[in-house]
Structures are given as structure tokens and as C-alpha cells.
Design a protein around this nucleic acid. Structure first.
Length: 456
DNA sequence: TGAAATGTTGGGGCG
DNA sequence: ACGCCCCAACATTTC
């Protein structure tokens, strides 16, 4: 009998909660990865950078495991079918995995749990990709926070409430201690290396996007709070894709952040916050968190959307960001806010369209954070910017890229005759946005009264 | 994690 | 010396 450890968005051996538990369990452990046809077959771009990133990570894991005398099962297909095959091929006693709380993952895992149950096999799940999950950081009455600042206060208090020492005698929160996975490497199932299919076997080609490195200079984290807002500066960690696929440990990075820079730690808390929001309110996918914002009449002009996607709006900072995204699968965070504000407020295009475009293009795309960010920008989310906070793309440029270093990098025709005029006048668009939002909210108010008239 | 509009204050030029 | 005006700088309110 063996145990299976199922890798999904936790593609590393070190400090992996579920893998650690599996190795400490009663059976030899054989790890598994499934290239999920349900997800992959929906991807439009057959050179999708994320698929290459995952394939690289899987190849790396397989090599590491073969050095340990074990291997990695790699399959392609619909998870249920793959598991049905595995049940025939292996004598499986337990299955371990790390929790994934995205909507699709929850239903997939339930399906697999049921399938395993009929074979008397437990599916054991663990928290690995965030620090505190749903239910761990709540208001005193047990209800979830929907505003970031009090959430983060409680989060930090919980983190600090159990300080201890690590192996080297340095102070560390109990919640950030690493799982010493490799100490139990003897419990991997001994076997010959198993083959890994190539990218084209699953219908993809190698992407030529550059993948950010997972080693980050300490000074970037240290100076994060001062430098993060300037897109021309190498001031952000670009670790998003590694957090997304678990090629680094969130606990390790949170521990660094706790010692080096509180603002960077806050960014990690935002991940927990939005992940938790999604877990409590799965309806935020496709719907505004504050439902009264569902009555806004978006203009949704298709030609405007195209200009935005191509980075041809005539607003240099917006265009630079959109082109950086298209060319690298990444966009500086300050600029993400500016382009999102521009799409929703200046162009009055439904935030869900922008969200979908980011989902397609971002290497570090994360459902919860992306949705939270877009709803924030549109003003309809938790802890949202009030709708009348409208970014001025020109003053944002002046503030954060005054010397046009970032803009010139991505928009070479900037300041030449080839660069277009602004597609819409700022003052006009601002006024229009205020009116349309106001009308939308008024309509919501009216509907609300029709549904539940006030009692006398 | 905003920006514009409006209000207030105080210094300096000037008659 | 004084009132008046202008305007920049800053503060507050409004969207």
C-alpha cells in the first residue's frame, strides 16, 4: 500500500504542509501531478506562459524526486478519469493534498473525495498556500472581516501571539515555522523514474515569456515601502507567479517580510484577505460584492476595449502598462490600479471584462486577488475605493514616472507624432463616470424600494 | 492605495 | 499705518 501526495498549486518539496503530513504518515509516498484538461482545454493561448511555468516546475520536481530514489506520476486528463485509472494501477491507502479554495477546485476536490470514499480511501487536505484561511481571522463575533485594515490588525496580532524560536534560535511565529519535509525523505516510495510528457503532448508550445526569479534581493523587500510605487524602479519582488504555483513557501516569505518590511507583509495579508473573502463569498465571481453596483449601465464600447487591450488609449501610463502586460505577462502594481481605474471609470467598461483580460494575460493570475483588485478599482468591492475616487492618469504619471522612464520603455513612440491623442478627455470622462455611477446607484435604490417597501 | 472644488490664511504690493 | 486686493499655500469639503 502507498499514499499519494497530489501536487496542484504547491510545486515544491521543501516546507510543503501536505507533503510533510503524507511523509509522516503510515505508507510510502508517491507524488502525483495532473495536467488538468478541464482547465487547460479552455486556455486560448497555446503558448500560455503559465503552462510552461508549471511544466518547468514539474520537470524540476521530478528530477529532485529521482535523486531521492523516488519519482512523480504525471498525467494529463480530467481529474476524475485520471483518478479512476490510478485506482486501478496502484494500491492506494491514503491521499494527501493541500487545499485549494477556488470555486472550480472545491467542486473538483469534492468529486475526487467522493470517488476515493467509494474505495474506502481518505482524502486528507491541508492549508499551505496562505497563512490564515477562512475562519482563522474573524471578528470577535465570528463573522468575517470585509475591511482590510481591521483584518490585518487581527491577522498580525494572531501571528505575533505565538512567537517561538526556529532551529537557528531566531524568533519566528509558530504559524510561519517551516515543515521539514526532506527530513522524512526516506518515506518516499522507491521506484524507477516515471516519464513526463512534453508540452506539445498536452497541446501546448513553450512560451518565451521571461519568468521572474524566485530569489529576491533582501534590499528589495527592505526598501519595498519606499520604492514599490515607481514602475521604472526595480522595487517589487515579482514573486506573484511563485506564490501562485507554490514554487516558494508563503511562510518563509512572510517570515522575511515580518522582519524586513511591514508594507511588504501587508501585501501578503492582502492575499489572505481576498482568498478568505472568496471563500466566504463565492458569489463575488461574476457579481459585485456590493450588489447595489449591479445597476450601473456600462457603455462597454467594443472599440474602446480594444484600444485599452492594445495599449493605444493615448494615455502614456495606461498604454505602457497594457503593453508590459501583453509582452511579459506582468504589470507593475501601481499601474494595474491605473489601467483598471481607466477601463472602469473613464471608459465605463464592465470591470468583469478587465478582470477576464487580466486572467488571460497575467502569469501571476490569482482568482481571488484579481477579482478583489478589480472590484476595488470599480468601487463595488470589499473595502473598496468610493466610486468617486477617480484616478487622473496624467497626474499618476507625473507622480510615479515623472521622467517617463517606464513609459518610454514600453511605448517607444511616446512623444512622437505617431503617438495618439487621448482617446477621451479626462475632465469629460470623469464627469460622465460620476453621473453614470450616480444613476446606477439611484436605480439600485429604487429597485430596492420596489422589492421591500419601507414599513410605515 | 484620488482628485477637484472650495474655503481659509497670510504675506506683499499698492494707493 | 491701514485697508484692499491678489495669490500662493495650505486645509477642508465634495465628488
Amino acid at each position: 500500500m502507498i499514499s499519494i501526495f497530489w501536487f496542484r498549486r504547491d510545486l515544491r518539496l521543501e516546507d510543503n504542509a501536505g507533503l510533510y503530513k503524507a511523509l509522516k504518515g503510515p505508507n510510502p509516498v508517491l507524488p502525483l501531478f495532473i495536467f488538468d484538461a478541464e482547465i487547460l482545454d479552455d486556455l486560448q493561448d497555446k503558448k500560455d506562459g503559465r503552462v510552461t511555468f508549471i511544466h518547468d516546475a514539474i520537470t524540476n520536481l521530478s528530477q529532485q524526486l529521482s535523486k531521492l530514489g523516488s519519482s512523480l506520476i504525471v498525467r494529463y486528463g480530467k481529474p476524475k478519469q485520471v483518478w479512476e485509472e490510478l485506482l486501478k494501477e496502484y494500491a492506494i491507502n491514503k491521499v494527501y493534498t493541500n487545499r485549494d479554495t477556488e470555486s472550480y477546485a472545491i467542486s473538483r476536490d469534492q468529486q475526487i473525495k467522493d470517488l476515493l470514499k467509494t474505495n474506502n480511501i481518505d482524502l486528507l487536505t491541508y492549508k499551505d498556500h496562505i497563512i490564515f484561511e477562512k475562519g482563522e481571522v474573524t471578528k470577535d463575533d465570528g463573522l468575517p472581516y470585509t475591511v482590510f485594515t481591521p483584518f490585518s490588525r487581527k491577522w498580525k496580532a494572531k501571528l505575533a501571539s505565538r512567537m517561538t524560536l526556529d532551529q537557528d534560535g531566531k524568533p519566528i511565529s509558530y504559524y510561519l515555522k517551516s515543515y521539514p519535509t526532506l527530513k522524512y525523505a526516506d518515506n518516499f516510495h522507491n521506484c524507477d523514474p516515471l516519464p513526463i510528457m512534453g508540452l506539445h503532448d498536452i497541446g501546448f508550445e513553450r512560451s518565451d515569456l521571461p519568468f521572474p526569479k524566485k530569489s529576491v534581493a533582501r534590499k528589495i523587500i527592505k526598501a519595498y515601502s519606499e520604492q514599490r510605487d515607481y514602475p521604472a524602479v526595480n522595487g517589487t519582488s515579482k514573486l506573484g507567479v511563485h506564490y501562485r504555483f507554490g514554487t516558494i513557501s508563503i511562510r518563509e516569505k512572510a517570515n522575511h517580510a515580518q522582519h524586513l518590511n511591514e508594507t511588504y507583509l501587508n501585501e501578503l495579508i492582502w492575499r489572505d484577505f481576498y482568498s478568505t473573502i472568496l471563500a466566504y463569498f463565492p458569489n463575488v465571481v461574476g457579481h459585485p460584492f456590493r450588489l447595489k453596483y449591479d445597476f450601473i449601465e456600462w457603455r462597454d464600447a467594443e472599440e474602446d476595449f480594444e484600444k485599452w487591450k492594445e495599449g493605444k488609449t493615448g494615455y502614456p501610463l495606461v498604454d505602457a502598462g497594457m503593453r508590459e502586460l501583453a509582452e511579459t505577462g506582468y504589470m507593475h502594481n501601481r499601474v494595474r490600479m491605473v489601467v483598471a481605474s481607466f477601463l472602469t471609470k473613464h471608459l465605463l467598461i464592465d470591470w468583469r471584462k478587465g478582470e477576464a483580460w487580466f486572467a488571460e494575460k497575467l502569469l501571476d493570475f490569482d482568482l481571488a486577488s484579481n477579482n478583489g483588485g478589480w472590484q476595488w478599482a470599480a468601487g463595488c468591492g470589499t473595502d473598496a475605493a468610493p466610486y468617486f475616487r477617480i484616478f487622473n492618469p496624467e497626474s499618476q504619471l507625473k507622480k510615479f514616472d515623472a521622467k517617463f522612464v517606464y513609459v518610454k520603455k514600453w511605448v517607444p513612440e511616446f512623444a512622437t507624432a505617431d503617438y495618439p491623442e487621448p482617446m477621451v478627455d479626462h475632465k469629460f470622462a470623469r464627469q460622465r463616470c460620476l453621473e453614470v455611477y450616480k444613476a446606477g446607484l439611484a436605480k439600485a435604490e429604487q429597485q430596492n424600494q420596489n422589492v421591500s417597501p419601507k414599513k410605515k
